[in-house]
Write a protein that binds this DNA or RNA. Structure first.
Lengths: 217, 217
DNA sequence: GCAAAAGTGTTAGTGATACACCCATGA
DNA sequence: TCATGGGTGTATCACTAACACTTTTGC
């Protein structure tokens, strides 16, 4: 921007788009929301919701708009992920895409929810984007309270542990998990219990449902 | 990109640029390389090197090009930082800027090297970009071997500790620092010593001068 | 009564912190 | 000889990891 040295090349043809990676947990596995590409060489393949950024809207606003366009009324935690701009990533035209991560407590209708398997086939470079999103989510789960975004307002410790286990891809010791998570002082017990198929479980909620970094003095 | 739902607005006028934040240590303080804005409303103010992305180059290539244009021949670690796209960030036109962080072992001629003080006045939203760069650097120093990018090939443990102390903004216990950093097994002693004004110090180098994440199983 | 998830404590080991003195050199 | 940075070890504390049994409920 505002070149200190004026550019001498044609550079007005690089477009800007956002792509949103909506993730949620479903049946014990991470699922992503995708839509079918309607036009162009990649027509018919699966891709994340997204498209051009308008001249008068911020990137965050564009991400929210495209997310809501696909999953109307969605309430999600949305954060910028990474920007992908290889010249060949969209065969049709030169488009730089600012990818966003969106975390939902549950799947909503409006898109296809597909499990995040490594073999998942997606249009463009969206497999790379998905990989980046999963890495980010895994990393942030370790040093933030981000799990709130994948859970309802109230939840049991078992459900919270399940979020961690599913995202991290391995099991955790229940006693140690409880000790650690409770020591972080992020949760408030509700005093009520959830009755399921078995012994009722204490319900908790996050003290703050917004990003908090923990353990980094 | 590749809209699943076609956009119905004029959106071809959002431009793409890169801005590079070159950082190095000088006289015990972090310094950033800036240039004077030559044109437009912000003319005369200080800003980071950067400008438009060409149609046929990647974002990384654009960042390298603008960095080299300002600091010719520079060898630096360059990584994408964040993308800034508020509509009003450049008064002249709508430009989305992909910011890059560049870490240098020493300042090079070609730019003004200014200390990274909170009061530093910069054009556009570059103060925000600088703040983001510093946060990123601080965070990554804690869980990567990124310090190599701010040091010459060989260095003493005192110099390495100085990098950490300067970036983190507080002092560290020398004995604990050495124990911890040597336990990470990132360094190789050269067997030679550096003779300065005082007792010679053992020289080390990083086993790998590329990004390594440590301590995250 | 049985299957299934909830709930709970102790121990051992590892890593972090705090802390003080001597060493080698150049000036 | 003195100023300056280099180099070293120990004791304590906090956190992590490993580990098994009892409880409560629905069916």
């Amino acid at each position: 921007m505002a070149p200190a040295h004026p550019s001498t090349h044609n550079d007005a043809t690089v477009g800007v788009a956002v792509d949103v990676v909506p993730l949620t947990l479903q049946e014990g596995a991470l699922h992503a929301a995708v839509v079918r590409v309607e036009r162009g060489d990649e027509r018919g393949r699966l891709a994340f919701p997204g498209g051009r950024v308008r001249e008068n809207e911020s990137l965050d606003d564009a991400a929210a708009r495209w997310l809501d366009g696909t999953l109307p009324g969605v309430r999600a935690h949305v954060e910028q992920l990474y920007t992908f701009g290889e010249p060949g990533r969209d065969p049709a035209s030169r488009v730089v895409s600012v990818a966003y991560l969106a975390l939902l407590a549950r799947p909503l209708p409006g898109a296809l929810w597909v499990p995040c398997e490594p073999a998942l086939r997606l249009a463009y470079d969206h497999r790379t984007i998905l990989r980046t999103a999963l890495e980010r989510l895994r990393a942030k789960l370790a040093y933030t309270n981000l799990a709130w975004a994948l859970l309802d307002e109230s939840f049991t410790l078992g459900e919270l542990q399940h979020v961690y286990e599913t995202v991290l891809g391995h099991t955790l010791d229940r006693r140690n998990f409880r000790k650690r998570i409770l020591a972080l002082d992020l949760l408030t017990p509700l005093g009520t219990t959830r009755h399921g198929a078995h012994r009722p479980a204490q319900l908790y909620r996050f003290r703050t449902r917004r990003p908090i970094t923990v353990g980094v003095p």
